[in-house]
Design a protein around this nucleic acid. Sequence first.
DNA 1: TTTGTCGTCATACTTTCGGGTGAATTAGTT
DNA 2: AACTAATTCACCCGAAAGTATGACGACAAA
Lengths: 146, 146
Amino acid sequence: MKKHILTYGLCGGVLIVLLKLVEYRFLVVEHSIEIYGGLIALLFAVLGIWLGLKLTKNKETIIVREVPAPQSFTLNETRLRELGITRRELEILGLIAGGLSNREIAEKLFVSENTIKTHSSRLFDKLSARRRTQAVQMGKELGLIP
Amino acid sequence: MKKHILTYGLCGGVLIVLLKLVEYRFLVVEHSIEIYGGLIALLFAVLGIWLGLKLTKNKETIIVREVPAPQSFTLNETRLRELGITRRELEILGLIAGGLSNREIAEKLFVSENTIKTHSSRLFDKLSARRRTQAVQMGKELGLIP
DNA sequence: TTTGTCGTCATACTTTCGGGTGAATTAGTT
DNA sequence: AACTAATTCACCCGAAAGTATGACGACAAA
């Protein structure tokens, strides 16, 4: 803003000098004062318009629109290490969240049901959960599962 | 827009007349030509600025900023009726998803644990779920719970 | 008034879950 | 080679969850 005003002033100064030259060399001697005034009027009008445009250049209307969240899930590896949860345990947490029973998980992973029990037990310990539903809840809160 | 230009022109005309009067009565006779030029410059500059402002008055830059909406959940009432799930059952589904046990839910709602069992049983039937984790999963998919 | 839905509760039984303990195997590190 | 972490598996027991069935009262609709 200050820059514009400064520029405006400089242009004015230059113009004055220019006018002086014009005045003494051609116009006043050869033509009428109307031309002189008209020139000044024209130039300053143009400058004024330019300044006006500059002054209003930054009129912006910001519209904030909410778009549906793009479902970007990124695993919170830090928390994983903090809690000491292993890959296998995380995998099982995901399957539990998927609504599978221990037996189904065991079949899916080709291991015994007891193994799944061991994993989930340790998982619950690390998550401070007592039930699988609670574990799912915490897992979501901690950013371990989507 | 045209109105503005017209006004501008009229102002200019009035000014010319005014200047003529000023010219012949005071200024040119008594003062130097610089005052005359300065006056014209000032007036036209003001007019120019005014016109510039008018011209750009409606030129607003509209910036649309898209912001991810923070999980706006709306209950799917239609599906609720389709499945014949009652308010109470939905309430219990929510608490199950929150990781509560049947006993905890019973205490929270001041009813017996058997009641919760009955409700959840019927709920699982309607959701075609065999386990509470599965019910939670389906509930989320069907838009019954956040 | 009858009918139907909803919410409540109970009893009995089966299945699943979760806790505790111990241990073998594998893979990676020092 | 020794050590550690991760994974695997087993057995037992109690708690929680789920199934099946029946019942009762409130309340609204037909």
